[in-house]
Write a protein that binds this DNA or RNA. Structure first.
Lengths: 197, 197
DNA sequence: ATCGTATATATGTGTTGTCCTATATCGCCT
DNA sequence: AGGCGATATAGGACAACACATATATACGAT
């Protein structure tokens, strides 16, 4: 599980609660390469503590649940470094959108077009958000050489997501053009005969 | 689960066994947008039959296990058409490789470079394979207008994967160049001090 | 002669991830 | 006054997925 290593990675930069991990990091600077459910974060922290790679300290609070501040242990740092030098490749492909397009021969050209246009607009939003984050991160001045290094690497990963998103928007534009010129053949069954609701 | 709809989609083109679904389609023409375990295919077929969207017919064989040939039912076609017109967006991002790069500030420039070069070579192979499939599919003549339509859409999805892969190779080239010029800061902890095995 | 591969389905088990709900209080907005 | 969002953790239930193993035989290669 890579979530465990994301957690170790962030705890390597300083002690934190599960809440912080989720809201300040996973939902923010890490959101373009990993997503995780809140429940899963807490459960993973539990597991990591049982494994001895993190330790927790309870900080009492008034009015709120006690904070459980986790820190990485030396064994945790070791495990993270081991993970860092192993080769990690992108995960198995599983893309419902491409699947939809693949099986769209039963739809009319108009329906296919609609799907493509809608996907384009979603992707464009995502791309804009990524670009905003990139300019924002680029303009932020880092207080230390270590942070500069972190920022450079973080920027590189953002560039990857931006490049991918842009390539996909371009591809969608090509598809839209092609469908507008008309796809070969005709749909076997039209949706409009089917779903007259 | 989209696997269910992949299965319905392929069964829509003709009756088939679980074995065929896995070996002739999922491991082949569908592999760039979906991957599935053999066990999962059979279990999903079971479920789909209980749901009444597919029916099975047992074909006895000598020397081999009986074939269980599945066909899509009218209700299955309906369910597939419903799914086809719904908007489907790419799944949540989960990329161990980007994560690795993000947390690589504890590695030396040389180690980061090694990771990038290795990723590049894997991706390049993947890209070559996709391109081969594309030329192969393009050169195949389709027997009917429906097949032509299928082929056009299939080609479009292949183009998406190719565009993504190419964008990523280009991005990796940029990264490699940048790291060769040197990343800012220095690693906090070197791996070489750590793993002298 | 045996080893591997293709054909064909099935189960057991564990892991990872999702969704929903519960709890408790503070502060802000309407 | 009352509702909503932020702070903070936690458990139950389930779906999806991965990995290993079992069974049985034909056929070609070494």
């Amino acid at each position: 599980m890579s979530l465990a290593h994301a957690i170790l990675g962030f705890l390597g930069r300083g002690p934190m609660t599960g809440y912080d991990l989720k809201t300040r990091w996973l939902d923010g600077p890490a959101s373009h390469f990993w997503t995780a459910d809140q429940a899963q974060v807490y459960r993973t922290l539990d597991r990591l503590e049982r494994e001895g790679v993190v330790v927790s300290e309870i900080v009492e609070q008034r009015g709120r649940p006690d904070r459980i501040v986790y820190s990485i242990t030396p064994s945790g740092r070791e495990s993270m470094l081991d993970w860092l030098v192993e080769p990690h490749h992108p995960p198995p492909v599983r893309d419902p959108f491409l699947m939809q397009l693949f099986f769209s021969s039963d739809l009319s050209d108009e329906d296919v077009l609609e799907i493509l246009v809608s996907a384009r607009s979603t992707l464009q939003e995502r791309l804009d958000a990524l670009r905003d984050r990139k300019t924002e991160e680029d303009s932020r001045i880092q207080p230390s050489p270590e942070r500069e290094r972190d920022a450079a690497l973080s920027g590189m990963t953002l560039d990857a997501s931006i490049a991918t998103a842009r390539a996909n928007v371009d591809w969608l534009d090509d598809c839209i053009e092609r469908v507008q010129r008309g796809l070969p053949g005709r749909p076997r069954r039209s949706v409009h005969q089917h779903s007259k609701r």
